[in-house]
Design a protein around this nucleic acid. Structure first.
Lengths: 240, 240
DNA sequence: CGTAGCATTGATTCTCTTCAAGAGGTGTGG
DNA sequence: CCACACCTCTTGAAGAGAATCAATGCTACG
């Protein structure tokens, strides 16, 4: 563990992800202001609930390490997974300006999250035009991501949905400057199925089919993309 | 045609929808400021394109009368309808803070829309905390609506999706203080099918089944809800 | 009044879901 | 270190639901 990280109070400048959480053009003073309102992020164990549906909506969260899912419990008892969040991504935007949390956020593995109090974020964003613009941008990006996912959900067959999900996940890895062809799926097949509107068995079979035709290899949660172009062709999802 | 509407420049205070476009608590001065940046809204004919995918993203729109849809053209040639917009609703939030428009907006019938230039909206929102908060709120509401729709898309069978859509549309009618049990569907069955991830024939059949069991009556684009409770029970979508 | 687009209805095919069983992996306790 | 139990993932067979293809009926508009 880094000596700096262990002894100092957290500062966004020390975090390799600050160019993901905030615009790359963000000034150091702006980062200072933001860092000041972020509490010390704890390490949360696996399956830990970060916020629960119905909670007071007063905080948004940035994932620092690990991963999390957001989900809603449906009246019929099933669970709908609305999103997965990786390091550098901001979670809880659907609660900004709302009374109560809509969904429940749960860690998928040991995870650290930075808590950003909404009241202070919105006040700060009035002083920092860059921050305000950034908030609009990440919210509209979230809406765009939702449209992409609707495309997957409405888009027909299981292979397309799974391929589209993998392509999207790969793009998010490269955004973090990680290899885009070697993916780890931190979520269970059931979560993935709920997210994609498929039974977990169908997810498993779709992964198997994609592997059969040589586009990927599957080894449990570890996925390797062998033919990114072929995968995109099946996903047919590059319409952004 | 109203003599006032014809002779005066538009002002939001003259518009019965201003409490929908903006918070009910909005002061008259704030409305003055907002009205000042809104151009004179033209009456657009049916099937008119308001903005097109790829256009410069510089404006958001509020529907004043009529209705519109937003859609994306998929690589395979099909069209994905991402949303329908009724009077008092704001369209184009997914473009706020982005370079280009993601989707294409088209009127479904003769429609008037108020154009709000993004640059001036975001500048104004720095001076008016209420407006900033409102923008965050309508964007997060849009995200929440998307989650609801994903629930419908992932939620299994055709009847559930159609019932859920009708329940949601009914709620939006009552929000405008209109009767919630008498709906007019301004969009074609094909648009509705694309929106719900169903073939247009399946939409037709689902409407027929809902009518068969006495929950609604269907007469072309005119829908009457006979048993709102029963419809909600099928939709199972009251998890907001 | 006629035409063109839109909506409904029917028959068939195909995909996914469901139910069910087995395999692989992981963590715990002996 | 091994054995067992638990959980997750995979694989199989049967059934249900929607997509597709195709034809008819309706509506609106010129």
């Amino acid at each position: 563990m880094s000596h700096a990280a262990a002894s100092h109070a957290l500062h966004c400048l020390d975090c390799g992800l600050h160019k993901l959480c905030f615009p790359p053009t963000f000034s150091n003073e702006a980062l200072d202001s933001v860092a000041a309102i972020i509490g010390q992020p704890p390490v949360l164990p696996r399956q830990h609930v970060i916020y629960r549906s119905g909670d007071n909506a007063d905080t948004i969260y940035a994932v620092r390490s690990g991963s999390a899912k957001t989900s809603m419990l449906l009246p019929d008892g099933r669970e709908l997974v609305t999103g997965f969040y990786l390091p550098g991504e901001v979670m809880g935007l659907e609660n900004l300006g709302q009374e109560h949390c809509l969904s429940t956020a749960t860690t998928l593995e040991p995870t650290t999250v930075c808590a950003l109090p909404m009241a202070e974020v919105s006040q700060l964003s009035r002083q920092l035009p860059e921050l305000q613009g950034h908030l609009f941008q990440i919210m509209s990006t979230e809406i765009r991501a939702d449209y992409q996912r609707m495309h997957l959900l409405a888009g027909t067959d299981a292979d397309t949905r799974v391929a589209g999900f993998l392509v999207g996940l790969s793009a998010r890895q490269t955004r973090r400057r990680l290899a885009g062809d070697n993916l780890r799926l931190p979520m269970a097949r059931a979560d993935l199925g709920s997210h994609l509107g498929l039974a977990l068995e169908t997810v498993s079979r779709a992964l198997g089919r994609l592997a059969d035709v040589g586009l990927i290899t599957v080894s449990g949660k570890q996925i390797r993309i062998l033919d990114a172009g072929g995968l995109q062709a099946i996903a047919a999802a590059q319409c952004a």
